[in-house]
Design a protein around this nucleic acid. Structure first.
Lengths: 121, 121
DNA sequence: ATAGCTCGCTACTAAATTGATAGCACATTA
DNA sequence: TAATGTGCTATCAATTTAGTAGCGAGCTAT
């Protein structure tokens, strides 16, 4: 299996394994944030339920991301399926500002697209 | 070149292109957050300066990430090199809580490693 | 003007990751 | 017994990333 980034050990962007770079290494993989987000908002979910909720994720990738998120302690498997841990919930909440910015971003792009004539400066 | 995710268009995790999923698609690529982070903290930087600051990124990947971040409007190239835009700075600030959590995460892991005898619980 | 520097960036190949699909072993239910 | 649902694994193609070399332009010193 692929190496799971851990703070304190060499990760992408930091040989000394700075926490934020380890976090980026972990979350900067396809679907990682999407899985955590989806599970936080819609969990607990079964493997297949999570797969469906993600719309287009393949089981192999989902399995990899789950393993990594579990190893990191962000996600756990309980009686009623996968769910985020307390720490995982903290990560989710840390992503909320990003959601806010993403909306600003979307609006800005929409503004650039709509008025093909003039522009507010 | 690889497709650049845009809110409103089909992206990983959302066929309708929800802003947060578009953001995850954009930032959930190898080095994307690391590049934005490094540039925010140490910028403006030249291409090679940014490459050095990232420690181990290859020019091909850096070039891809820069293209994507520029297309998204998070990064721009000025007289004195690459720098984050106002929007890019917003994204950076939205990542700050993640940095905080990453430290908690690192501490938790350190606590689990250190005491090989007993454990508080 | 020719050598040496840095600049942004491209080309090329190999390795790793991701995507897509099929299906396994187990448990539950009917 | 058969059908369904569970968490996954296997396989293979497609895409992405890594690693390294180097281009063409510009600037500087000789």
């Amino acid at each position: 299996m692929t190496k799971i980034p851990v703070p304190g050990q060499s990760v992408r962007g930091s040989k000394s394994g700075s926490p934020i770079m380890a976090m980026f290494d972990l979350l900067g993989r396809r679907w990682a944030m999407g899985v955590l987000w989806t599970l936080s908002e819609q969990g607990p979910l079964s493997f297949r339920g999570l797969q469906d909720a993600c719309e287009t994720i393949s089981p192999g990738v989902l399995n990899s991301r789950i393993k990594e998120l579990r190893a990191a302690g962000f996600v756990a498997l309980g009686e009623d399926g996968y769910h985020v841990t307390a720490l995982g919930s903290d990560v989710y909440e840390a992503l909320l500002p990003l959601s806010k910015v993403s909306k600003v971003w979307a609006e800005r792009l929409a503004d650039l697209e709509k008025p093909h004539k003039a522009q507010t400066g």
